[in-house]
């Protein structure tokens, strides 16, 4: 292993790339700031929440989201890879993982949380999903089929969770406030109203 810290190595790398015109430190600063302040116009859980909430109130959009998700999601943000939307029902609950690395619907949700990239989650959720979901505080009834989707190719997955009961008449914006990041990964449910 290198004697230098990752921070020192990063500085050296950036200096070399900057000296030869391959990296602009101002662009790096701006990209980090934009990612850290994402509010729902660019890829972030807030953007995913808008898509889910619309699918809850707009049957036509929901149908398009399930049959042609790349085009439907492009109404919000262009998608550069195939994406499949997984519809939760009373009988089926979906969970996504990338056992090989960290593949995640980043074009919609932004960067994955650290736990999604951890060896613990990646190795265990395919093998014992009910135990892993319990660590997230989720109990899935034994009569609900659990489907774990391993992102082993360039297609990404998004879970379309069930609309919470008690939200009749709510508009899209209010519903979007109930959609959590984890509910679009499958390791959580939308918030209760």
């Amino acid at each position: 292993m290198s004697d230098l810290t990752p921070a020192q190595r990063t500085e050296i790398l950036e200096r070399h790339l900057h000296d030869h015109g391959h990296v602009d430190p101002g662009d790096v600063d701006a990209a980090i700031a934009a990612a850290e302040s994402a509010s729902g116009d660019g890829p972030s859980p807030a953007l995913g929440a808008r898509v889910v909430a619309r699918a809850w109130v707009d049957a036509d959009f929901r149908a398009r989201l399930l049959t042609d998700p790349v085009t439907a999601i492009a109404e919000y943000h262009p998608q550069t890879v195939p994406i499949a939307v997984l519809e939760d029902t009373a009988a089926v609950h979906n969970v996504i993982v990338c056992t090989l690395c960290s593949c995640y619907p980043g074009g919609l949700l932004g960067n994955p949380p650290a736990w999604y990239k951890s060896f613990e989650y990646r190795s265990r959720v395919v093998r014992e999903p009910r135990a892993v979901l319990a660590e997230f505080g989720m109990e899935v009834d034994s009569d609900v089929e659990l489907r774990v989707h391993d992102s082993t190719a360039e297609q990404r997955y998004l879970v379309l969770p069930l609309r919470p009961p008690g939200t009749d008449g709510w508009d899209e914006e209010r519903l979007a406030g109930l959609v959590t990041r984890n509910s679009m990964i499958g390791t959580g449910l939308p918030l209760a109203p």
């Binding site: 790398l13 990296v23 790096v28 980090i32 850290e36 960067n111």
Partner: peptide, 16 residues
């Protein structure tokens, strides 16, 4: 409430 990047250098690596 985890941050997007835990250390400053992580974001720079991400962008580079």
């Amino acid at each position: 409430d985890e941050p997007l990047f835990h250390e400053r250098w992580e974001g720079r690596v991400w962008r580079m």
